[in-house]
Write a protein that binds this DNA or RNA. Sequence first.
DNA 1: CACCCGTGGCC
DNA 2: TGGCCAAGGGT
Length: 353
Amino acid sequence: MRKIMSYTPQFLAWYKQNKRDLPWRETTDPYAIWLSEIILQQTRIDQGLNYYLKFIERFPCVIDFANATEDEVLKMWQGLGYYSRARNMHTTAKTIVSQFQGEFPASYKELMQLKGVGEYTAAAIASIAFNLPHAAVDGNVYRVLSRLFGIDLPIDTGQGKKAFTQLANELIDHQHPGNFNQAVMEFGAIQCTPRNPDCTICPFKQSCQAYLSNTINKLPVKKGKVKIRKRYFNYLVIVSDSSTFLQKRTQNDIWKNLYEFPLVETEKEVTSEAVLEQFFETPQTASSLYITDETSWKKQVLSHQHIFYRFIYLKIERKSDIPATLVKVNKKDIFNFAVPKPIEKELEKTNWQ
DNA sequence: CACCCGTGGCC
DNA sequence: TGGCCAAGGGT
C-alpha cells in the first residue's frame, strides 16, 4: 500500500508542470464540466474544443440549453458524431431544470441518474466540480495503470473494469480528487501514449512494470474485435425550382433524428434504375422522372459500419409523384438542418441559392 | 455481457 | 491502405 500511495504526488506534480491550458480547466461550474466531459467522450480535444466554445457561447447556462429545440442542439453537434450524446444532453438539461431547480446534483449517485452520464462522467463531474473522491476511469487511465502496474486483465470486460476502477480509487488524492483524475488522464494523453511513448523521459521509468519488462506495446490488453457491417445508401436529390426534399431519420439506427435526402438502402451497389423502381413502386411514375446527375460511390466509415453511398439527382415533372411523407425544404434553408457527414459533404458541392 | 452508436488522425 | 485509437454510454 505504501508503494501504491507514493505514485499520487508524482502524478500531481507532473500535471502541474505539463497540463495544457484548456477553457474548462478555468472553472468548477458543474454545467461547464458536464458539457466538456460529454463532448470529450471518445473524442480528441482538438476535435471537441471548438464545439465546447460554441456551446458555451450559445448556452451560457443549463437553462438556456434546456430551452433550445433538439433540432438546434443536433445542428450544433453536427460533425461530432455519436449523436445520442447530444440527444441525451438535451434530455438531461431539461431534467436539471425541472427536477433540480437548475442546479446539478452534488453527488455521484444522483449524477449517475442523468441521461448520458455513466460511471466515468459522474466521477469526473463529482471530483472536478464538487471535490468528491471518485476515480474517473477512462481509456487513458486503463492504459497508464495497466502499464505502471503490469496488469494484463482485459480492459473491455467487467472484471477488468472493476479491478482498474478499484486501483484508481486506492490511488486517488482525497484532497485534490479533480486534479488527480485529470492528472492521470493528461499523463496518458501526453506521456503514456498508446503508440510509441517516449519512456526515456517518463518520471515512472524506474518503477513502471511494463517498461521494466519491455511490454509497453502489449498493454493494455483488449479482448474483442468489432464486426463491421457493410451498407449501401442511394440518396435521391429531388430538385425543383426553389426547393428540395429531406426526411428525418427517426428509427433506432445510425444518425437518429438527423436529416438526409430520401434514401433507398440496397444490399449491394445497384443501378440507378433499380433504385428508382424501389422508391417509386408505381411503374407509370417512370415517365415523369429524369436523372440529371449521378455521383460515384463513396465510403463513410463508422465505428461498426461501412456506409457506401452515392447521390442520384432527379427531376420530377408531375409533382404528385413526390411522396407526401417527405419534408419540402426551401433551398436557402437547407443548411439549417442537422445532417450526417456524407450529406454535409454533398451539400457543400452544390450552390443552393 | 454483447452489441450498437461517428468522426478524424495516425502510422 | 486499413486497423487502431480517442476524457463512454445505452440497451
